[in-house]
């Protein structure tokens, strides 16, 4: 049986192929941050509770502290560095939806996926999704306002990607 614990992985991150030698037991969060220098996803609780580490794997929000990097081989990973002028980023700035900003990348990735997946999200769906992330500075109202603004704008311009 194969004994080596380190392996070379080829990951697709933010539209680029990145190869890295890493422990098979390493989480996606640490491979992104320490291996690939993508420090946007934040380590918070490392226990699946806070959502600061949220990234998208094939468009689905995932807590990267609870997924092995090796599980994502063959999938498309999007971190906050991969968002380019997404409407939710501007809405966060407009609504001042952060204070210290530590939770912001996780919130934005989750909110971005929500907007893409459920452009007609109702109040309950918005709440259900946003409950996955914690903000210690309690910018919750501003975050909710930012998400709703983007959803409204999208409804008004349904052909916009």
């Amino acid at each position: 049986m194969e004994e080596t614990t380190k392996r070379e992985l080829v990951l697709h991150v933010n539209g680029e192929r990145r190869s890295i030698v890493t422990r098979q037991a390493e989480t996606l969060l640490f491979v992104l941050r320490d291996g690939l220098g993508l420090t946007g996803a934040k380590p918070g609780c490392l226990n699946g509770d806070c959502g600061a580490c949220t990234v998208l794997v094939d468009g689905t929000p995932i807590k990267s502290c609870m997924m092995l990097a090796i599980e994502t081989v063959g999938k498309e990973i999007t971190s906050i560095e991969g968002l380019d002028d997404a409407p939710i980023q501007h809405a966060f700035v407009r609504h001042f939806a952060f204070q210290c900003g530590y939770c912001t990348p996780g919130f934005i990735m989750n909110a971005h996926a929500l907007i893409e997946r459920h452009p007609n999200a109702d109040e309950a769906t918005i709440q259900e999704w946003l409950e996955s992330n914690i903000c210690r500075c309690t910018s919750y109202q501003e975050i909710e306002a930012a998400v709703k603004e983007v959803l409204e704008a999208k409804k008004a311009k349904p052909t916009d990607p």
Partner: peptide, 9 residues
């Protein structure tokens, strides 16, 4: 963060 090594299949 996993504080030991394992092989993944």
């Amino acid at each position: 963060m996993v504080p030991f090594d394992f092989a993944y299949y």
